[in-house]
Amino acid sequence: MAKPVEAGAPVEGARPIQQPSRHARSPFERVWLALSRFMLPAFVVAVFLAIWQWLPPALNIPTYELPNLSTTLQGLQNNWPDLGNALLVTTQDALAGFIIGNALAILGATVFAYSANMERAFYPLAILVQTIPIVVYVPLLIILFDQVPLLANNAQALAVVGVTILISFFPTLVNMTVGFKSIDPRVYELMRLLNASRTQIFIKLRFPSAIPFLFSSLKITSTLAFVGAIVGEWMANSGINPVGSVLDGFGVHTLLGFPTNPSQASGVGGQLNLFYFRLDKPGLFASVVTVSILSILFFGLMVLLERVLIPWQKSQ
């Protein structure tokens, strides 16, 4: 089976090949092996944080010019009411685009799997759409949505979700198109021997064969969705906040110490603009750090799901 396409994604599980040990490992060695997997990266991160904390002051750079770790944390605390709401909005923008984009991509790849002509006709278009820088789509989508009476009122917010859909769509389309074809030729012959229908072959063979490919692209698009959301928010100064509206409906106006203001929906991208013009660099840094943590957590969730749902892939 071909390896799933995993361009740009961190290669997880790429630890150095361990020499086959001639003797049984001592308890100390086993504990060290287990710990090193978590301790080593934790140590590297700790060193990075320490350098961030101590280097700017040591070089006499004022922390309001280049915020260090503690100033950034201070900025996070000071701006939490705005930033918390912005993170809520960005999460919704990213999730909406991630879910819709991936769903459309799976649907598209399914159509390709059923019709080679559809694939021939539309695959080049999909590549073309992808080669245009994502930033271009924000104004393009706003202009487009402005012309649709139903959407014109929310053209900005929809453009943000639209960009996130576009950025999530392509990796999954490519991976699933390849995945649906990456079937064991013998098992395919067996299905033919059984006179299986096209749909049976799709459900019982093609789809399960494509699941590892789906997870590779879910890992890629889980982080890309946040890129799309922030670029969109940053350019359109907008975003979606249905959760805020729902909470508002229930009379809940604060969550985790920030106001869930449904009318304030420009997300972390919008917040970056604001901090930039206010010259609030600690606030800017705090936005970057928190949104990174959010996107890493989402990526981690995909890795976890992959481990739980396709255990045969790991042990092969």
Partner: peptide, 26 residues
């Protein structure tokens, strides 16, 4: 016609029982 290939050609995501049941499902 039943066919046994040189390689087992099993579905890696299915248990033995479910692999055996595949033809009946089809």
């Amino acid at each position: 016609i039943g066919f046994v290939f040189q390689d087992p050609a099993l579905m890696p995501w299915r248990s033995s029982l479910k692999n055996v049941r595949l033809p009946l499902e089809v």
